[in-house]
Amino acid sequence: MVQCTHQQVDLDAAFAALADPTRRGVLEQLGRSEASITKLADRFGMTPTGMKKHIAILEAAGLVTTEKVGRVRRCRVGADRLEDVAAWVERYQQLWDARFRALDDVVAALRNKENTGGQDST
């Protein structure tokens, strides 16, 4: 049985939330400025009820926070969770960058060997 840490569960929820293009668009919009659910619904051509469902998923994943101001629910980006997602992606980007640099070295060595007629230049 595989046990998940709290952070892994949060990352799973964050990536599941980010899998939807509408929710990514909502995050992009909220990155510019906070907005009400009604404003977001209008922007994305959907009903407020439909947008509430998207916001609920983003909020459960920690990607968005909401606050009720009078009769209006204001939404803003939940920066902490985005930082966690970015840190996770960065670790793998560093890993793949190192692997591609090593591959570049192999390709360069093979080209050098090919250009010298198969003789080892060392």
Rank of each mutant, 00 (worst) to 15 (best):
V2A: 04
V2D: 10
V2I: 08
Q3S: 13
Q3M: 02
Q3F: 03
Q3G: 05
T5M: 04
H6M: 02
Q7V: 06
V9W: 05
V9E: 11
L11W: 02
D12V: 04
A13L: 14
A13Y: 14
A13K: 14
A14G: 15
A14F: 13
F15S: 10
F15W: 15
A17W: 09
A17G: 09
L18V: 11
L18T: 13
A19R: 10
D20I: 13
P21M: 05
T22N: 09
R23K: 12
R24P: 00
R24T: 03
G25L: 07
G25R: 02
V26G: 09
V26K: 02
L30I: 06
G31Q: 06
G31M: 06
G31W: 04
R32P: 00
R32G: 11
E34G: 15
A35Q: 11
S36Q: 15
S36Y: 10
S36M: 08
S36I: 09
I37D: 01
T38D: 08
K39I: 05
L40Q: 12
L40N: 11
L40M: 10
L40V: 12
D42P: 01
R43F: 03
F44A: 13
F44M: 14
G45V: 12
M46N: 04
T47H: 09
T47P: 07
T47C: 08
T47K: 08
P48R: 13
T49H: 11
G50E: 12
G50V: 08
G50I: 06
M51P: 11
K53V: 15
K53E: 14
I55A: 08
I55P: 12
A56K: 13
A56L: 11
I57N: 07
L58C: 01
G62N: 03
V64S: 04
V64M: 01
T65C: 01
T66P: 05
T66D: 07
T66G: 06
T66W: 09
K68W: 05
K68A: 10
V69M: 09
V69A: 13
G70L: 07
R71C: 05
V72K: 04
R73T: 15
R74K: 14
C75V: 09
C75L: 04
R76I: 00
R76V: 02
V77T: 15
G78D: 07
A79N: 00
D80G: 02
D80I: 02
L82Q: 07
E83T: 15
A86D: 14
A86R: 11
A87Y: 01
A87C: 00
A87I: 01
V89H: 03
Y92H: 04
Q93P: 00
Q94C: 06
L95K: 05
D97R: 10
D97E: 05
D97T: 10
A98D: 15
F100I: 15
F100M: 14
A102T: 14
L103K: 14
D104F: 04
D105E: 06
D105W: 00
V106G: 03
L110K: 09
R111N: 15
R111I: 12
R111E: 14
E114V: 00
E114N: 03
T116G: 01
G117F: 05
G117Y: 10
D120K: 01
D120P: 01
D120W: 01
S121H: 02
S121N: 09
T122P: 02
T122F: 03
